[in-house]
Design a protein around this nucleic acid. Sequence first.
DNA 1: TTCTTGTATCGATGAACGTCGATGTAGCCG
DNA 2: CGGCTACATCGACGTTCATCGATACAAGAA
Lengths: 118, 118
Amino acid sequence: MSMPVAGERPAAVCCAPLGTGAIGEEEARATAEVFKALGDPHRVRIVSLLAATEDAVCVCDLTPALGISQPTVSHHLKKLLTAGLIVREQRGTWSYYSLDREAIERLAVIADLTEVAR
Amino acid sequence: MSMPVAGERPAAVCCAPLGTGAIGEEEARATAEVFKALGDPHRVRIVSLLAATEDAVCVCDLTPALGISQPTVSHHLKKLLTAGLIVREQRGTWSYYSLDREAIERLAVIADLTEVAR
DNA sequence: TTCTTGTATCGATGAACGTCGATGTAGCCG
DNA sequence: CGGCTACATCGACGTTCATCGATACAAGAA
């Protein structure tokens, strides 16, 4: 166990009422996990491609669009899948992926720090 | 056979960064750069701490709040600074950091895929 | 069954990242 | 001036990541 104190300091010297609205370590790690999933150009393009259509897209379409090898595409899709940003749907031999609209909406809320900050 | 048919969408939207069909590689890289800056728990906490107050916060307050060494804090601050998410202000010996509200707002717009995706 | 196709996984490699101690630098005060 | 403080930079180490070729797996076709 670590000791996430963080809010028990007098903060005497400088200023700053630190810790008044800050999130905990666990929440920070979960949030960073989602952002990290989007911290790659190819994954951003995948999300962009999935957001451009309402239908699901199969890997056979994503691979030539991204210009990278098929194992790498699967690797990125798994990252997004683990982060809960996309969903997988198997149709016979093909794997179809689509955006998890709800997750994206949560992401938008997370990113909107101005609301919390004001 | 696989046909790259997914990228032929009109995407009749007004001004959606991630939703307008296939975004370019350059734009994807720039977007991923911002997300990557937030893809670390400590940096998420820094942003959260800065968002919790309207005033600027100096490093001497951030370091004990995060529980990591001072060089590491400076490292993370530089990452956020390079990404354009925070701004630096020097007051004598102290360095004060604060959120770039405009950048956060842009981030929220980027992350808001629901509007275009729906 | 065997053959073929579409995906996921494995293994390896090179690059990028987070972390810290040591050091450098700039500003304040006695 | 010297000494101290707050922060940035450097150097190194261990970890994680993105990438690809090779391979395993699953499902349909012959």
